[in-house]
């Protein structure tokens, strides 16, 4: 009992000194303690299973889904998003591409599959979250290299940059308010500078991520939606042009970095 108390005290002391240090190194230490134990592994398995499960009126799996490298190819696809697809004549992020495959290949209803893309606190994860987590893991260790060959892809980057700096709402917040400077933080939370290669690579390369405080894997689409909630804006829609544009802006700034997702976050 005494020993246990000592252990707890040591942990508390570590936690306090960690808090006083007040930088991102704190969480890096925690991440190191966790080692390879990321609860996202269960979500990865679930995502893989969903990919191979026949669903919808067509009773089809997603194996015919073309994520950019040919039907059924999953490895190395995530790091090439967002990208232009000729069959939809649009730049798509992975989430909107998956929705496209669910509706066209599996014959599922668009409204149903997009009704609740991101889980709420206390929920089990959603199908989109699981699929994205698995597909990100299928690119783990790969170099971030979003397509920028089609004019539409380059236009999406420009649009994303413009939205990044767009100030609006009662607090006048833009993405840039918090994410255009290096080594800044909100309270104790370190903020990546998404205008820099290093900051963008760290951020883009670590989502989707398991959020310990929420007990869920979150995708970049969710991360953006929650940023805008804090910006006091209306709700960002999954697969919307603004969402894809901002993801293009981040991914291109991150190009050359390494995909480490699924990450582990506070």
């Amino acid at each position: 009992m005494k020993r246990r108390n000592l252990g707890f005290t040591l942990f508390a002391v570590w936690l306090c000194s960690a808090q006083l240090a007040a930088n991102d190194g704190v969480f890096d230490q925690y991440r190191d303690l966790m080692g390879d134990d990321n609860p996202a592994v269960f979500v990865i398995d679930e995502g893989e299973e969903l990919w191979f499960t026949p669903q919808g009126p067509e009773s089809a799996t997603l194996e015919a889904c073309d994520l950019g490298l040919g039907p059924g190819v999953t490895a190395g696809t995530y790091v090439r998003f967002p990208r232009y697809f000729a069959d939809t004549d649009a730049v798509m992020d992975l989430e909107s591409r998956l929705v496209h495959c669910m509706t066209t290949i599996q014959g599922r209803d668009l409204e149903t599959v997009t009704a609740k893309p991101y889980s709420l606190r206390g929920d089990f994860g959603t199908e989109i979250e699981a699929l994205v987590t698995w597909l990100a893991a299928e690119s783990e260790g790969a170099t971030i290299a979003p397509e920028q060959t089609h004019a539409a892809e380059r236009a999406m980057y420009t649009l994303g940059e413009e939205i990044f700096y767009y100030r609006a709402g009662p607090h006048d917040f833009s993405c840039a308010t918090c994410h255009e400077q290096s080594d800044m933080r909100i309270r104790l939370q370190a903020l990546p500078d998404l205008t820099s290669h290093a900051g963008a690579a760290e951020a883009w390369g670590s989502w989707p991520a398991y959020r310990i405080s929420q007990g869920l894997v979150r995708t970049m689409g969710w991360r953006l939606r929650d940023c805008f909630r804090q910006q006091r804006w209306p709700e960002l829609q999954m697969g919307s042009e603004a969402s894809i544009a901002l993801q293009t802006y981040m991914a291109v700034n991150a190009a050359g970095g390494i995909m480490t997702a699924p990450g582990l976050k506070r």
């Binding site: 609006a168 709402g169 909630r229 804006w233 209306p234 709700e235 919307s240 969402s243």
Partner: peptide, 15 residues
């Protein structure tokens, strides 16, 4: 790309 949610109405996007 956005939809109104509770008190966060769409007019907030006008600058």
């Amino acid at each position: 790309s956005f939809v109104a949610k509770n008190q966060a109405t769409m007019d907030r996007l006008e600058r």
